[in-house]
Amino acid sequence: MGDTDAQWPGRLMRPGPLASLLWTGLRRNLAMTGAVIVTVTICLAMLGAGLLLRAQVHTIDGFLLDQIEVVVDLSDGITPAERSALEAEMRRDPLIAGVRYETKKQVYERFRRDFRGSPDVVAGVGPEDLPAALRLTLADPRASRDIAVTYTGLDGVEAVRDQRALLDPLYRFLDAFTVGAFTLAAVQALASFALIYTMIRISAHARRRETAIMKLVGASNATIRAPFVLESAVAGLAGGLLVAGVLVAAKVFLVDGKFARQTMFPLFGWAAVWESAVVVLAAGVLAAAVMASIALRRHLRV
């Protein structure tokens, strides 16, 4: 009987022949592959934009953590005992990192400093017009609203001014764009799936002789599917690389070049760009490969 058996070691194709199958497939399917790359790129660009916007929100949060304080204006009639009771309570509050008392005079000095560009405003306000205040630094800037609720209306408290509330429009703007970007990414992901599904169908048809022979000579199912999945993954990789380039370009030209001069807020750094680029690349390759595998179940019976 034959001296050979089916038990030889390697079961998947070697990289060389596999690459040649992949290459002929990509070439044969050039237009379709191009279309897939375009949709995948748009999808990943939206994903990347969403990730960077989220990074920007975090960057601003980090900045506010240092900068933003809640100011508790004290009524003029507060007694020293009431004030120290209030301060003690605040020091026990886990949301509050620090409490600093400012006298009416100190508040006036700060006011003059903040509005030194507007002498008219400064001229209309005297040292007695402004209330003494407790300035609170927060453990978590997002908790400012809770603090406002807790201390408003207590004895001796005239008003609680939450500086972060002033930034609500900015946050709403960034959040809306983040959600919008992720939504568009999802829609584009659907479009990409539809295209990859079609690409696999066309590719399976174009390759049907090859796959028939592969089946005939005993290629494993993984081997038969590999060129298809790789074809899609290559499109995903191409889209991911394009988007990674766009993210870097956006950081260099748009963020560092343009916005940096227009805003007092700090902008996200390179770490966020690299992080987003890695996520975009991984998502592009993996999602495209998974989509191809799903499409293969339908179009390639092995």
């Binding site: 390697g10 290629a219 081997t223």
Partner: peptide
């Protein structure tokens, strides 16, 4: 002919 060996992973 080589295709039949390649796709079952025979070494080069």
């Amino acid at each position: 002919v080589a295709f039949a060996l390649d796709v079952v992973g025979r070494p080069r």
